[in-house]
Amino acid sequence: MNSFSIADCTTVDAALSQLKDDAVVKAGGVDLLDRMKDGIEQPTRLVNIRNVAELRGIRETDQGMTLGPLTTLAEISDYAHIREHYQILADACGHAATPHIRNMATVGGNLLQRVQCWYYRSADFQCFRHGKDLCFAFEGLNQYHAIMEYGTCPSVAPSSAAVALLGLGATVELTSAKRGKRTLGIRELYIVPDANPTKFTVIEPDELITAILVPKPAPGTRSAYQKYGEKESFDWAIADAGVVLEMEGDICKRAVITMGAASPVVRRSAQAEAALAGKPINEETARAAGKLAVEGATPLSMNAYKLDLFPVAVYRTVLLAAGKMNRDPSAAG
């Protein structure tokens, strides 16, 4: 790992004052140290926010819930109120990475982790996302890559928490010392590679995530998240599904279906949602939603299997959310 200096901060104001001269923010450090050890980033100055107490913790409010961005994935998945009312979020945070990493990794860091494309992650391959003009995945090994909405970079969205938080309609509060606060939806946080390949999120160098706001679910809401991987633990998803259903009796008033490992930025599937809205949740409607979730997909040379896997992930997670199927024993984590 390269040598660097560090500004160890204990308050938000202190951290904001240090965000200058290409300083890089370190929270849990899991993804940042990984990138530094792999040599794809070599910042000379870090701003350590890990000890900023005001950015950590879960607060229940009249509007829903406020997550401090430094709250760890383990703290979120173990929190009783979240397990009861935001199952999708408990599932997503509780099945990411390994138990030890969940003890260290923060939810803010999980949202901002870089894509896991093995070409991007190798210092030997200077690709589009590193500011060069080529992608190695289209002609190379692309079995874990995107099947839709990829443009010039078929990496996939790596954050499980984003799949859950997008489903819940969460927003992220960003704070800058100069410009104050602004609030963005989860989808708006990310930049598609074609718009700007080297800038993964809209967060400016002088901004910090200072809160994640999760609205209170409407009455009758049920939710779930499941991911499928090559390994039972540690690995990122090869297919995943977040499902939020607003039920009125047996009828689904409104459905939100989210996916991470299909595209470079976390997505909602309007087609799959339409297949459930106004209908009962059963084998037939859940299957239809699964099928529609990959409509329009254009797989690469090695990942057509995702056209079969995503529909199954969505179908089973819809039924899991509705309480009509148990958690899939073949799902990862």
Binding site: S3, A7, S17
Partner: peptide, 10 residues
């Protein structure tokens, strides 16, 4: 630390 910052390194 007076302003909530301690700087050190490399």
């Amino acid at each position: 630390s007076p302003h909530g910052v301690t700087e050190f390194g490399p």
